[in-house]
Write a protein that binds this DNA or RNA. Structure first.
Lengths: 166, 166
DNA sequence: AGAAAATAGTCAGACATCTTTCTATTTTCG
DNA sequence: CGAAAATAGAAAGATGTCTGACTATTTTCT
């Protein structure tokens, strides 16, 4: 014999309406949507971000990658290592500055990025499919506002300009 | 000698404007804001969510907790174990159903929740401080719309109603 | 009643994050 | 120039999250 224990949703409103809670759930969901669309390629959102950046700036180092994707150093190292294991990027110590490990896509990595174009586009579409067009625009604008307003306060700010030895 | 390598922000717009990317950044930031405000209590957003739910439904089991907070089973087990280690909750096997582990706050857990009221309120405020009041309302509404629209499609849907043996 | 299905937990493994600490190298500056 | 500061990376450890496999218990259903 079973019985429904009536747990009133309202009882949890103080939790469910918290911006942090909603953002965590949104993150869970958008990750799943991305992974769902790209399942056959065995790639994660973070790895995709890294590939995207490395393609645009071949020869970038781990710190540069971190600053363009918003990773901290450890995450950049981890994601790079995964990508290298999969054969999508190559890394080597820089000759001019032997502290640096410079990264570049392999031919396979380039192919992978091409193959990902469609599924990642679909993933975006899927996220926004909960909204009307107007809402989608507003959602992205506000999300961007929040992220931009706090960019510099994080321990991993996004810094498009990299300094380099001449 | 240093020189700024001009990396055009626009080059990365295709990445930075992705909803998934923005949500990931938002998650990073809101976590940091929560942790910043509650630093002295050594508590995480997930642990706070669990405490909140266990207070409302003492005697809940790990699966019930998972379904109210949006964790999967493993995460529920992990977070519970952290909270127990910290002495904030107590767990024991249920007598009526020996598969279940039932959870309840300790006196310390209750005190902790009280002490967290203020800092967590501030954390919320901080997240929304990037917005005007109107924007904040819209942001939460849209976030909620996204999360609700996709709740059932996730592998960890939030299910306020728990079934229980009579 | 007894077999099959569902349910609660655990464990091991993966990935993304962040922290702190340590090493190596390069840059800065007195 | 040479010491101090800054920078890049690595290593170890913590938390949250998910998966898949496995065990134990309870419920369902023939």
């Amino acid at each position: 014999m079973k019985r429904q224990t009536e747990i009133d949703n309202d009882q949890f409103r103080a939790l469910y309406s918290r911006p942090g809670f909603l953002i965590r759930r949104a993150h869970q969901i958008s990750m799943a949507q991305f992974l769902g669309e790209t399942a056959e390629f065995d790639i994660t959102p973070s790895q995709f971000g890294a590939l995207f950046v490395i393609e645009k700036v071949p020869g970038i180092d781990q710190i540069g990658l971190a600053q363009l994707v918003g990773f901290d150093r450890s995450t950049a190292a981890l994601v790079s290592s995964k990508l290298e294991t999969k054969g999508l990027i190559k890394s080597q110590m820089s000759e001019e500055d032997r502290r640096r490990k410079v990264l570049a896509l392999t031919a396979e990595g380039k192919k992978m990025l091409k193959k990902l174009a469609e599924p990642t586009r679909r993933a975006q579409e899927e996220v926004l499919s909960a909204f009307t067009e107007k809402e989608a625009t507003t959602f992205l604008r506000l999300l961007n506002k929040y992220v931009s307003a706090n960019n510099e306060t994080t321990r991993t700010p996004i810094r498009p300009k990299r300094t380099q030895k001449r």
